[in-house]
Design a binder for these strands. Structure first.
Lengths: 373, 373
DNA sequence: CTGTTAGCGCCTTCAA
DNA sequence: TTGAAGGCGCTAACAG
C-alpha cells in the first residue's frame, strides 16, 4: 500500500509471469479461469493499480483528454464543464484543463495548441468557445488528432466536428414571444457583428419580425459587446428618446447585456416589465435570481457538453467510424463524416416581459400574426 | 512534423548520441557550446518536443497536478480556477481536473481519491472546498503525496497545508459597517451551522454586535442553507413580523441567500435599501449586477487560488522544505511545517445598505461606537 | 566533453 | 495456457 508496487510484484505474488498478469488486467482471453481469479484477487488485495504512464508509453495511447476553455469565469462554461466532467468520469479518461485566459495573447494560444499536439500528452481535444484559436484547431484535426469544437463565433469548418446552439431559432422564438405579447417596437441590442453568434441571433430577430409583418426599424438595432456595460449604454440611448420613439421591449442578445439594461432602466426610473419588457439570451445561472427574474433564451449547455464529449470519445476510441485513410495521401480525412450538431434552445419565461396594454398598440399594420417557426 | 520523432531521430540528425541530446534538453552542463547550439537548432527546426510520458516513466515524477473541485457551477470556484490555471500555465505542469459532482456519493469520492493516489498519475493535489472528502485527503498527505486544501467547512487538520478566507473578520467588518450606518436590529441568516464557515461568520457578526454594545437578539438569527431558497424563506419569516419587530438590516451569509432576501422583499413590497438594508457574503460575480447592486463581503478567490497553487508547486518541487524524514517511521511528517494561510476579505460597498434615518433609532443603548477590528 | 548501457512499468510478439 | 524477451522514449550512471 505504501510502497508502490508494480506488475512484477503481482506476478511474483501470484507465481506467474508479468505477461499473464498483463493479460488478466487487460481482459485478454487465453488465461485459465483459476489463474485469472487468483491474480484478480491479489490485485484487489494489494490495491494494485497499473501505472498509466507506463501504459501510455508502451501502448502509445493516452488516457488524457484536453479540454480547452476560455476563462472559466465566462458564463455557461462551468455548466458545460460539469456535464463533460461527469461523463469523462465514467470512462478511463481524465481531463486536462487548458484555460485560454485573456492574458494569453494569440501567439501564446497557438503555442499552447502546438504543444498539446507535439507532446501527444492527450488523446484528443474538446475546445469550448475557442474564439481566435479555432483556426489552429483545424490544423490539429488535420494531423489526425481528434478535435471537437463547441463554437459560436465561427461557421463550422470543413472536417472539424462541431457542436453549437440554434442561436437563430432561439432568437426567433424569443422575438415571436414578444410579438405575441403585443410588442411591435422591439429593440435589439446585438453582440459584436464579427461573431457568427451575433449574426445568427440578429437573423432570428429579423425573421420573426418579417414573419409577423412588422417592418424592421434600424433605429431600434444597436450593436453591443455582450457585456453589461454594452447593454447599459445601448439601453440609455434607447430610453433617452421621447416616449413615442422608445421601444416597448428590448431584446438583449446576452443576459449580461440584459443586466446592463436593467440598471439603465433603473437610472431612468423605468420599471421592468411595467414600463418596458426585457428579453435576454443565455440564461446565466444568476438570471433567475434577478429582480425581476429575467425572461431569456436558455442555451443547451448540458446537452452541448454531453454531445461534444461523447463525440470526442468516440473519435478517439473508434476513429475508423469517422476517418478514412486516403490511399495516396499521408493525412487522414474526416471531411465527409464531420458531424455538425445544432442543439435547440429553450425559452425561459420569467418576469421581465409583459403583455402590452391595448392602448399602447398604435402601429398602422397589424394584420399578420406569427405562427411559423 | 507529421510523424512523431523521438530523441534518437534528433541524435541521428545531430550526429551525436541520445545521451547528449538528453543533456542539452535538460540544461545539464558538460556539453560543448557548439554541440549544444547545433542540437538546439535541430530541435527547433524539427519542432521536437520530448514525450512527457516517457520522461514521467523514467524520472518517476509527473508533470500533472490534480485539482479537485466541487461542482464547477458553485460560486467562486471559477474565479479561483482562473488564477490557478494561469499560474500553472507558467510552469511545466498541467492541470488534471477532478470534479466531485453531487451525484458522486461519498463512497465514490473516496474511490476517486484512492485512485488518484494509486495511479500516481499526478504529482500532487489541490483540493478546493472538498467538503466531506477532506478526511480522505489527509490520508493522501500522510502517504507523502502533497496536498493543499482550500477549505471552509472544517478546521485545518494537523499536517495538511490549508488556505482559507478570514470569514470571521469579513463578517465582523460587514456587521460593523451596518452598525456604523445606524442599524441596531440586524438580522443574520446563517449557513448550516455544521460548517465551520457558518460558525465563523456568525462569530464575526456576534463579535461586532458585542463590541458595539448591542445585545444579541436570538430572534434575529435564523439558519439557512446558503441557497436562494433559504434566504427567501428566512426573509419571509423576518418580514412578516410587525414593523417594530422587524430588522432594519439583514446580513445574509451568502450572496445566494441575499438574492432570496431580495425576492422576498419584493414579495412584501419592501424596497431595498429604502425599507431595509441588505448585506451579502461572497461577492459572486453577478452580485454587482443585481438591482440594486449588492453590498457584500468579497472572498479573496484569486489570492486563495494563487497561494494554494504556489504552495503546492513548492511542496512538489522542494519537499525537503516541508517534509522531514522520520528516522524510525516509514512515513514522512509535515506536521510542524504545514502552513495555514488565512486571507483577508474585502467589504464591497454597493447599493443595498443605507444609513438609517434618525427617527428609526429607538433602542435604549447606543453609547458605544465600534472601532476595533 | 561525449557515447554506451541499463533500466522506468508495462504490453506484445514469439516460443514453449 | 503460459513464460521469456524485446522494446515504447527517455534519463542517469558509468565509461571513455
Amino acid at each position: 500500500m505504501s510502497e508502490k508496487l508494480n506488475i512484477q510484484d503481482i506476478a511474483r505474488l501470484a507465481n506467474v509471469s508479468t505477461g499473464t498478469v498483463s493479460r488478466v488486467l487487460n481482459n485478454k482471453p487465453d488465461v485459465s479461469p483459476a489463474t485469472r481469479e487468483r491474480i484478480l484477487r491479489i490485485v484487489e488485495e494489494q490495491g494494485y493499480v497499473p501505472s498509466s504512464t507506463a501504459i501510455g508509453l508502451v501502448s502509445g495511447r493516452s488516457r488524457l483528454i484536453s479540454v480547452l476553455v476560455p476563462a472559466l469565469t465566462w458564463p455557461l462554461i462551468p455548466e458545460m464543464m460539469v456535464k463533460v466532467a461527469e461523463i469523462v468520469e465514467g470512462t478511463p479518461y481524465e481531463i486536462v484543463l487548458y484555460s485560454i485566459s485573456s492574458s494569453n495573447h494569440l501567439s501564446d494560444c497557438g503555442k499552447v495548441i502546438d504543444r498539446i499536439l507535439a507532446t501527444r500528452l492527450t488523446a484528443g481535444m474538446l475546445a469550448i468557445f475557442p474564439g481566435q484559436s479555432a483556426q489552429h484547431l483545424t490544423h490539429l484535426q488535420r494531423q489526425g488528432f481528434p478535435v471537437v469544437l463547441i463554437d459560436d463565433q465561427h461557421a463550422p469548418v470543413e472536417g472539424v466536428p462541431w457542436i453549437g446552439a440554434d442561436n437563430r431559432g432561439g432568437a426567433y422564438e424569443a422575438t415571436r414571444y414578444l410579438i405575441a405579447l403585443g410588442h411591435q417596437r422591439i429593440a435589439c441590442i446585438q453582440g459584436p457583428m464579427k461573431y457568427k453568434v451575433s449574426r445568427d441571433r440578429y437573423q432570428g430577430y429579423q425573421d420573426a419580425l418579417r414573419d409577423a409583418g412588422i417592418p424592421l426599424d434600424s433605429v431600434l438595432v444597436l450593436e453591443g459587446d455582450f457585456m453589461p456595460s454594452g447593454g447599459r449604454q445601448g439601453a440609455r440611448e434607447l430610453l433617452a428618446r421621447p416616449k413615442a420613439e422608445r421601444p416597448t421591449a428590448i431584446f438583449a442578445q446576452s443576459d449580461l447585456m440584459a443586466y446592463g439594461v436593467m440598471s439603465a432602466a433603473a437610472e431612468f426610473g423605468l420599471s421592468i416589465p411595467k414600463d418596458i419588457s426585457l428579453m435576454g439570451f443565455d440564461d446565466n445561472p444568476s438570471s433567475a435570481h434577478m429582480q425581476p427574474a429575467l425572461t431569456t433564451v436558455q442555451q443547451p449547455c448540458t446537452e452541448m457538453g454531453q454531445q461534444a464529449i461523447e463525440l470526442l470519445l468516440q473519435l478517439i476510441e473508434e476513429p475508423h467510424l469517422y476517418y478514412r485513410q486516403q490511399p495516396e495521401d499521408k493525412k487522414q480525412d474526416l471531411t465527409e463524416y464531420a458531424p455538425r450538431i445544432q442543439l435547440p434552445t429553450n425559452l425561459m419565461i420569467r418576469d421581465t416581459c409583459k403583455k402590452l396594454s391595448k392602448r399602447a398598440l398604435q402601429t398602422p399594420d397589424r394584420h399578420k400574426q406569427a405562427v411559423s417557426g
